[in-house]
């Protein structure tokens, strides 16, 4: 359902991704691991359509209604409306914009795109509270400005809560595990696992193997210096945990 072909990406004339190939089928979880600076987060942002990155070569194809569409030609909001979701590594704080208003705007944009009726504010409130409960988020957050005065862990949980609200078909989790204590990690992982089904797929980007104990990947890819140097099953994550990345980059 999602395919990256020979993707090359530059930022400020520095090439960060140097030919990525990746194919993800519905129902699969793929993990991308790699040392700092290998280009993991760049890949996540390029998929979501961040304007700072320049794609110099390659394509990203995404299957919608049995048709392959070219993701790189779409605005970030169009990608999101088609079900591509990015859980941010550093969620953005938005003073003055309440969580509920923010998510209702997002949810309604999705409804409009699908030709469905917008949900009325009262119903949405009930719906949102349910999703917050799923991520063990205190209800008081519903009226707070987005991510303002949230702890690191709360921000990450909030990303997955938003994923639960928007129910994407292809989700990219960018270092969702960093900065989480073990309890939060379990809550987040449980949330992610509940959202997993045979029709959607996930790309889990992580520096450590920790999260992958809970969200079990079907494939693990190692990204070094802008290229995928090794792909294998879930056991690869443990190997990396044991031996680090050096043995891979020297090859």
């Amino acid at each position: 359902m999602f395919e990256i072909k020979n993707l090359h990406v530059k930022i400020n004339d520095t090439e960060i991704l140097r030919g990525i190939d990746l194919k993800v089928n519905a129902g699969e979880v793929h993990a991308i691991m790699g040392p700092n600076g290998s280009g993991k987060s760049t890949l996540a942002k390029v998929i979501a359509g961040h304007p700072d990155y320049e794609v110099t070569e390659g394509e990203i194809l995404y299957e919608v209604n049995f048709k392959k569409i070219n993701v790189l030609e779409m605005e970030p909001e169009e990608r999101a409306q088609e079900g591509i979701f990015l859980a941010f590594q550093y969620p953005v704080e938005i003073p003055g914009v309440g969580m509920s208003a923010f998510l209702r705007a997002a949810f309604n944009a999705l409804c409009r795109h699908q030709g469905a009726e917008e949900m009325d504010p009262m119903d949405f409130d009930v719906f949102l509270r349910k999703k917050m409960k799923l991520l063990a988020m205190d209800e008081k957050f519903i009226n707070r400005p987005v991510n303002v005065d949230f702890s690191g862990g709360e921000k990450k949980r909030n990303e997955i809560m938003q994923m639960a609200v928007l129910n994407p078909r292809f989700a990219v989790l960018d270092e969702t595990d960093s900065g989480l204590d073990i309890d939060s990690m379990r809550i987040v992982a449980d949330g992610v696992n509940k959202l997993k089904n045979k029709n959607n797929a996930m790309l889990v980007i992580t520096h450590y193997q920790r999260l992958l104990n809970y969200v079990i990947p079907d494939f693990v890819h190692i990204l070094v210096d802008g290229k995928i140097v090794k792909s294998s099953g879930k056991e690869l994550a443990l190997e990396v945990e044991d031996q680090g990345y050096d043995w891979l980059s020297k090859k």
């Binding site: 970030p76 909001e77 999101a80 938005i94 003073p95 914009v97 705007a105 997002a106």
Partner: peptide, 20 residues
């Protein structure tokens, strides 16, 4: 970008952020 990444069109995002 955060709002766009959640599916909110740029124009509406601008309006929401200004209101915020």
């Amino acid at each position: 970008f955060y709002l766009q990444a959640r599916g909110v069109p740029r124009k509406i995002a601008t309006r929401i952020l200004t209101q915020g």
